[in-house]
């Protein structure tokens, strides 16, 4: 062995050693990650890619899939019957999202009220949080009872007390969606209140004191301090709200099954019907693709529009 060679070996070996150690650590890390990687691969990434492909096939179980290009999308967007049905479900989904701003206003109002150190606050917080906690299936059954179309339904009792005609609520194509929205606001409020409270508590108190000295009233403080400093929280709640309303399923399945006359068929329910009632896997996958793009576009719009107005303190 020449002198230079042995020198090279001497200088190389520590770095080689380090490389070996790094490789060992990488291996260990991947072993730690293996369960998660496996499950994500099988039940998230593969299905997502699968949906993207299946959307271009006609695949009505139990028959084999046939490649049909864009024909599923043609059915959804161009076909007289298909486009009308699909368009309605898109509109219904957007209508259902009307609950989000209502929910934000109500929960912000309650959160501001709860943001005080007075005895009994904890009890109120628990009360408002209760609906969020309980399962949508059970809650839907309870609200079906509240919305019962007979005179002994609780909401109808209320109408009668005020001398108004009774309604058939969930069985009325015009009222069914508002009924679901009210239920959604009632159930989602608790979660939003907790998040808003966390946001409110992070606003420095001396800002309010300083503005007090400057003669600001309650409304001024709310408009000029609370709202701007809370905007990241509101933004977050907005995104979660959109994602949740796109996912909404249990209440529709239990209370209305998408009816009456398709008045409560949202995109999620439409997809479920095509996949698990009509067994048209290809068409359901095409809807899934549209839903995916829908979420993507909505998120981008939210970021673009809202970010300008969101104040990150």
């Amino acid at each position: 062995m020449s002198k230079t060679e042995s020198l090279a070996k001497n200088t190389l070996s520590p770095s080689l050693q380090r490389k070996q150690r790094q490789r060992k650590e990488s291996l260990a890390a991947y072993a730690f990650l293996a369960p998660s990687i496996l499950i994500f691969a099988v039940f998230t990434f593969f299905p997502a890619i699968f949906s993207m492909v299946a959307g271009f096939f006609r695949w009505n179980l139990p028959y084999d899939p046939v490649f049909t290009g864009l024909s599923n999308f043609e059915f959804l967007f161009v076909d007289d019957i298909g486009a009308a049905e699909f368009g309605k479900s898109v509109l219904n989904t957007l209508y259902f999202m009307l609950g989000i701003p209502i929910n934000i206003c109500v929960s912000l109002w309650i959160a501001v009220m709860l943001n005080r150190r007075l005895p009994g606050v904890g009890i109120f917080r628990t009360a408002f949080f209760l609906p969020t906690l309980t399962s949508m299936a059970a809650i839907s059954v309870v609200w079906m009872w509240l919305y019962h179309p007979a005179d002994y339904g609780l909401f109808n009792t209320l109408l009668i007390r005020f001398g108004l005609p009774i309604q058939s609520w969930l069985r009325d194509p015009v009222l069914a969606m508002p009924c679901l929205i009210v239920l959604g606001v009632w159930r989602g409020m608790g979660y939003n209140i907790v998040i808003f409270l966390a946001g409110l508590q992070s606003i420095p108190h001396d800002l309010y004191e300083a503005s007090e000295i400057d003669g600001a009233n309650w409304w001024g403080q709310f408009r000029l301090i609370t709202l701007p400093l809370l905007s990241p929280t509101t933004f977050y709640i907005l995104i979660i709200g959109v994602i949740n309303s796109l996912k909404a399923f249990a209440e529709i399945d239990i209370m209305t099954q998408g009816g009456p006359l398709g008045a409560t068929t949202t995109l999620a329910y439409y997809l479920y019907q095509y996949a698990f009632q009509y067994f048209q896997i290809g068409l359901a996958s095409a809807v899934a693709i549209v839903l995916f793009v829908f979420i993507l576009v909505l998120t981008l719009i939210q970021f673009k529009v809202v970010e300008k107005r969101v104040h990150y303190g």
Binding site: F40, A48, A268, S285
Partner: peptide, 19 residues
Amino acid sequence: FLSTTMISTQVTLVPSYLI
């Protein structure tokens, strides 16, 4: 991993069922 939170249940529902 974090991107999985953006993929909604409906997108993966049918294939997951088939699996």
